[in-house]
Lab assay of single mutants.
Amino acid sequence: MLEGKVKWFNSEKGFGFIEVEGQDDVFVHFSAIQGEGFKTLEEGQAVSAEIVEGNRGPQAANVTKEA
């Protein structure tokens, strides 16, 4: 698991990027966000996630919002 913060997230398109210190930004799709209801993230929000290899490079999986 790694910790980072949301760089930006487009709720209409359902994707965005997470900033991780010392690494390239990581793509995040709404389907990777854990929880019930409408899955979205806010800019600057702290999150933790796993990194997996997607079709277009590294992407976030099992994204959870930090308190």
Rank of each mutant, 00 (worst) to 15 (best):
M1G: 09
M1K: 15
M1S: 10
M1V: 13
M1D: 07
M1H: 12
M1E: 08
L2Q: 09
L2D: 04
L2G: 06
L2H: 11
L2C: 12
E3S: 15
E3D: 11
E3V: 15
E3F: 15
E3W: 15
E3Q: 15
G4M: 06
G4W: 07
G4Y: 06
G4V: 04
G4C: 08
K5L: 10
K5F: 12
K5M: 09
K5I: 13
K5V: 13
K5G: 04
K5W: 11
V6C: 07
V6E: 04
V6G: 03
V6W: 04
K7Y: 05
K7T: 07
K7C: 09
K7D: 06
K7W: 05
K7R: 08
W8I: 00
W8Q: 02
W8V: 01
F9R: 00
F9E: 04
F9Y: 08
N10G: 02
N10P: 00
S11I: 10
S11M: 10
S11K: 15
S11A: 13
S11C: 14
E12P: 04
E12I: 13
K13W: 10
K13D: 04
K13P: 02
K13E: 05
K13L: 11
G14M: 01
G14L: 01
F15Q: 01
F15P: 01
F15E: 03
F15T: 01
G16T: 02
G16Q: 00
G16P: 00
G16F: 05
G16Y: 04
G16L: 03
F17L: 06
F17R: 02
F17N: 01
F17C: 09
I18S: 00
E19Q: 12
E19P: 00
V20Y: 06
V20Q: 03
V20F: 15
V20W: 08
V20M: 10
V20R: 08
E21C: 14
E21T: 11
G22V: 02
G22R: 03
G22L: 04
G22M: 06
Q23W: 14
Q23N: 09
Q23P: 03
Q23H: 14
Q23K: 12
D24G: 13
D24R: 14
D24A: 14
D24F: 11
D24H: 12
D24S: 13
D24M: 12
D25H: 07
D25F: 07
V26M: 06
V26F: 05
V26Y: 04
V26R: 00
V26N: 00
V26A: 04
F27W: 05
F27G: 00
F27E: 01
F27Y: 07
V28T: 03
V28N: 01
V28M: 04
V28D: 02
V28I: 08
H29T: 02
H29K: 03
F30I: 07
F30W: 15
F30L: 05
S31T: 12
S31F: 04
S31N: 07
S31C: 09
S31R: 07
A32P: 02
A32T: 05
A32D: 10
A32R: 00
A32V: 08
A32I: 04
I33M: 03
I33D: 04
Q34E: 10
Q34L: 14
G35C: 10
G35K: 05
G35L: 06
G35H: 07
E36D: 12
E36M: 11
G37Q: 05
G37L: 04
F38W: 13
F38S: 05
F38A: 07
F38L: 06
K39M: 07
T40N: 08
T40W: 12
T40P: 02
T40F: 11
T40L: 07
E42L: 13
E42Q: 14
E43Y: 14
E43P: 15
E43S: 14
G44A: 04
G44R: 04
G44V: 02
G44W: 04
G44M: 03
Q45T: 09
Q45D: 12
Q45Y: 05
Q45A: 09
A46P: 11
A46R: 15
A46T: 12
A46Y: 14
A46M: 14
A46F: 14
V47E: 03
V47Q: 02
V47G: 02
V47C: 04
V47D: 00
V47A: 03
S48I: 13
S48G: 08
S48A: 10
S48K: 15
S48W: 15
A49R: 00
A49L: 15
E50V: 14
E50G: 08
E50D: 10
E50F: 14
E50I: 15
E50N: 12
E50K: 11
I51N: 02
I51M: 08
I51H: 03
I51C: 08
V52E: 07
V52P: 02
E53N: 13
E53M: 15
E53F: 15
E53P: 12
E53C: 15
E53T: 13
E53R: 13
G54W: 07
G54S: 10
N55A: 14
N55M: 13
N55Q: 14
R56F: 12
G57D: 02
G57Y: 05
G57N: 04
G57E: 02
P58L: 11
P58F: 10
P58I: 10
P58T: 09
P58C: 09
Q59F: 13
Q59T: 08
Q59E: 11
A60R: 01
A60S: 03
A60G: 05
A60T: 03
A60E: 03
A60H: 02
N62T: 10
N62I: 10
N62R: 11
N62D: 05
V63C: 05
V63Y: 00
T64L: 12
T64E: 08
K65T: 11
K65V: 14
K65A: 10
K65C: 09
K65G: 08
E66T: 15
E66R: 15
E66D: 12
E66H: 15
E66N: 14
A67F: 12
